[in-house]
Amino acid sequence: MTLLALLLTLFLSGFLAVFWPQGAMAPDLFLVLALWYARQRPYYLGLPGAFLLGLCQDLVGYGLLGLHAVGLLAAAYALYAAGRRLALEESLTAPAAFFWAFSAKWLGYFLVAYWLRLAIPPLAPLDLLLEGLFTLPLFLLALRLRAKAP
């Protein structure tokens, strides 16, 4: 199931690149997959899983190895932290947990950028917010799929 989800994510990431409007932040499918995986696995599988998924995302994006890995690792860790305090299956707490993890992902990115003294691209807060808003429905859908799975 996890492998199938990974293959689907890889496929959809290529598919979405064509249909998503140019210049707009696309939903982060890898984040959805990492959180979905972390939600159904214990931390000792979920954290390395998110890390490996981030590496995979780095490879797909032909970018710096470790950037997305750290971002998704931070997001998964934040989700575990949120999961200890919130019931993620509820309609109000799930978005809050998602935005917590989403913020952690970007914090991870900024950490790597700071670590390597990279020039941070000029990102508008609205772009980040839109990416989160586009990704949220997919995250909620993934949670529902998990809830329905036997």
């Binding site: 954290l47 750290v70 931070a74």
Partner: peptide
């Protein structure tokens, strides 16, 4: 969990560097 997170974080930072 924190230890694992920190280890992977360091790994990621090291890998990126």
């Amino acid at each position: 969990r924190r230890g694992l997170f920190l280890a992977l974080l360091l790994l990621g930072l090291g890998l990126s560097a």
